[in-house]
């Protein structure tokens, strides 16, 4: 698959929104994972008319590769302003791949409190899991070559798109 054949992120977001809609209640909390997951969560928060505040996680302090590669160069503060205890949380991320990011995010959430439930929504599931993690809501499943990295991007006017990079050049 190359950049030309990648699915349209805006269409995927619309599909994902409709898959989530039946399960979203006034008690649902959305938590995005930086950076792409936060963009998606902001849009979902608006479209699904969530009333509880939006959460944002930077999982840099919970990554399992810290001892190999050190601290991620741009750490942003996590922003969880609500009580996590007893909440029904939907984690939002752009691309589900090895599952390691989600493992880190779940661990971080539990350091804020014990949620009643955590579900996972992702725009793209590219398979190749390295730990047993599954998403509850998926925009699309696609298969990519191992040396490719898929990234969500946001233009100045807020429009979302997917891009494919070579892992080596992009780090």
């Amino acid at each position: 698959m190359d950049n030309m054949n990648l699915p349209d992120a805006e269409q995927l977001l619309a599909d994902l929104t409709e898959k989530m809609r039946p399960d979203v209640t006034k008690n649902t909390v959305l938590v995005g994972i930086y950076t792409g997951g936060v963009w998606l969560a902001e849009r979902l928060h608006q479209t699904l008319e969530c009333t509880l505040p939006l959460g944002a996680l930077d999982i840099s302090f919970y990554r399992d590769d810290f001892s190999q590669i050190g601290l991620h160069p741009q750490v942003k503060p996590s922003n969880i302003t609500f009580e996590v205890e007893g909440r029904h949380i939907i984690l939002i991320d752009d691309v589900l791949y090895t599952g390691r990011t989600i493992r880190a995010a779940i661990n971080e959430l539990f350091d804020y409190g014990r949620p009643a439930s955590i579900r996972l929504a992702v725009l793209v599931d590219r398979g190749e899991r390295e730990i047993p993690i599954a998403a509850n809501y998926v925009g699309v499943k696609i298969v990519l070559l191992e040396d490719k990295m898929l990234a969500l991007e946001q233009s100045n006017n807020g429009k979302l798109s997917l891009s494919l990079y070579d892992k080596k050049s992009s780090g």
């Binding site: 930077d58 840099s60 302090f61 919970y62 810290f66 601290l71 741009q74 750490v75 942003k76 503060p77 996590s78 922003n79 661990n107 971080e108 350091d111 804020y112 409190g113």
Partner: peptide, 20 residues
């Protein structure tokens, strides 16, 4: 200084620990 900004939030949580 930028990294410390992220740690300020950690120190305000119930569980003030990260596994780094």
């Amino acid at each position: 200084l930028d990294t410390a900004e992220s740690f300020v939030g950690v120190t305000e949580r119930d569980i003030k620990k990260v596994p780094l």
